[in-house]
Amino acid sequence: MRELYLGVDVGSVSTNIVLVDEDINVISSQYIRTNGQPLETVKTGLKKLKKEFPVDGKIKGVGTTGSGRQLVGVMIGADVIKNEITAHATATIHFVPNVKTIFEIGGQDSKIIVVDNQMVTDFAMNTVCAAGTGSFLDHQSERLGIPIEEFGDKAMAADRDVRIAGRCTVFAESDMIAKQQFGFSKSEIIKGLCEALVRNYINNLGRGKKLEPPFVFQGGVAANKGIKAAFEKEINHEIIIPEHYNIMGALGSAILARDGNWNSQTETLFRGFEAADLEFVPSTFECEDCPNHCEVVEVRLDKKIVARWGDRCGKWTNSVNTVI
């Protein structure tokens, strides 16, 4: 029998589900667009995963992370529910033990995590400004009519440098149009955009931080060679892109599940693949019992409430008996 761990990273744009063995070798990994429906997305993922599940495998622990970590954690029965920063750092430290600086750029958010001696000592996170995230590039690729997948190669083919104001998406756009009119090629513009994104990202998140090598770059945007080159130019140092750059959050939560399980020999809370067939119905209400007016989330399974959170006082959370 092989002991396996499941890690789920539920972001607002995409959801990753990974299955790993005890030594964190990836056995299966699913990438699905979340489309605002975390529960449905994870169900689809579980069904796919079931088909690839080794016959001699047994799930020993489950971890969730990402903005939907709590909801999905309840649904699949997670042993560990952790924030994205800790989850990402955990994975990076596992694969690159001497890492000191982690650059993570996803579709909707981005972060810098500073690590010392395998321990997170500092971090910054950007969730509001699009100019430092992948959606900035998506946007520009649409404008230029060049698929995002080709961005990297195009950027590498540029002959000249062009500086594009990247403080903000709106400025970048008008500046880009201007530069096109000056006669810069699309390749050059794309290279300029990559550099603008990196400059922006470092200015925003790296302020006041000691950024030291080894540098690791991960998240969906790490697939883009142009951005990697821009990073290396900006910080004047080589950058490591881990093999699983795209699923680090999910891997991190799988590792956390494994390490949580290491000491206590407790049974996993995993509901099994049958969870994909269960009907979970989330809803929210505003509690008016005191001036806090908490927005309480509740999840029902077969009309029975299986989880509640969001209350400040604990009265709703505590009123749920943990079931199955």
């Binding site: 001696n117 000592t121 500092d122 971090f123 910054a124 996170m125 950007n126 509001v128």
Partner: peptide
């Protein structure tokens, strides 16, 4: 935890200021 295991003597001074943007 680290401070406990290392003893108070060599407290790690590398922690930086955590900022939030956005």
């Amino acid at each position: 935890k680290e401070r406990l295991s290392q003893g108070e003597k060599n407290i790690n001074k590398s922690t930086q200021h955590v900022t939030t943007t956005g």
